[in-house]
Nucleic acid binder design. Structure first.
Lengths: 129, 129
DNA sequence: ACCTTTGTTCTACTTCTATTGTAACACATT
DNA sequence: AATGTGTTACAATAGAAGTAGAACAAAGGT
């Protein structure tokens, strides 16, 4: 699992880390039950503070993508991550909505945006940018 | 153009305003050349500060969706908003990407997400939630 | 039993964001 | 000339975000 952090990005470090871990899960590189590095080891590895990694972990725990076992370690949801509930899907849609609206203003057609989504799915699964 | 602001939302007021104006443009309710209220009038109307409206306007100006004519007023891009450049489309894709990745982790299929996007397009065009 | 490693917690500091407010300015429009 | 416009400046408050160091309690390995 290669992590690349852009220190000059407007996206906070902990979020970049969390998002890349999410992509790792989506890609199947991180499977249910797999353990993640300790906050200290990961932080040292990535050259960042322990709290930053910790924040990323808790972000993922809130989404129930991982389990943080106190004084033990962090693992990807061992029983597999359940399919999105209607509520989760709704929340996702709400987040995507303003971006779709912006696409419409920029005269992108529905089809073009569908293609964009399909392309993104492929890129994520392949781990390409 | 009805604006609804959720004061308890985590989305800042100025952004909510900007996003709703964007939807207004996407919906065709706000056409090229149409003028928008003055920062003072709009602020009074919406019960917010002048600077907050001003911030929303500048957010939209940065995206070149509107023109702010100093000492005169604010209008929707009079010559029409040009189609997204490759760069703009790329930027949009980058913003959508983490959300798609999250959808994948939540076991949403490519098709389900495509349906979600199509639904969003319709909702935006109809002005429904 | 001892030691290392683990996530947790507390405290702390700095920076940035968001929002509101007042006031004055320069220029269009009427 | 008066009004209305966005701009700018200065100010203040509240809160969140980001990063950081140190100590703590318990799990795990030896």
């Amino acid at each position: 699992m290669f992590i690349e952090i852009q220190t000059n990005s407007s996206v906070p470090i902990y979020l970049q880390l969390a998002q890349q871990l999410i992509e790792g899960i989506a890609r199947g590189e991180l499977k249910p039950g797999n353990s993640l590095p300790s906050v200290r080891a990961f932080a040292a590895d990535l050259g960042m503070n322990m709290h930053t990694v910790n924040k990323a972990y808790h972000y993922l725990e809130e989404k129930e993508f991982i389990q943080i076992v106190a004084k033990s370690g962090v693992i990807i949801q061992p029983n597999g991550i359940p399919k999105a509930t209607a509520q989760e899907q709704q929340k996702l849609a709400e987040q995507i909505r303003p971006l779709i609206a912006e696409g419409l203003v920029l005269k992108l057609s529905e089809e073009e945006m569908v293609v964009m989504v399909r392309q993104l799915v492929q890129n994520i699964k392949e781990g390409t940018s």
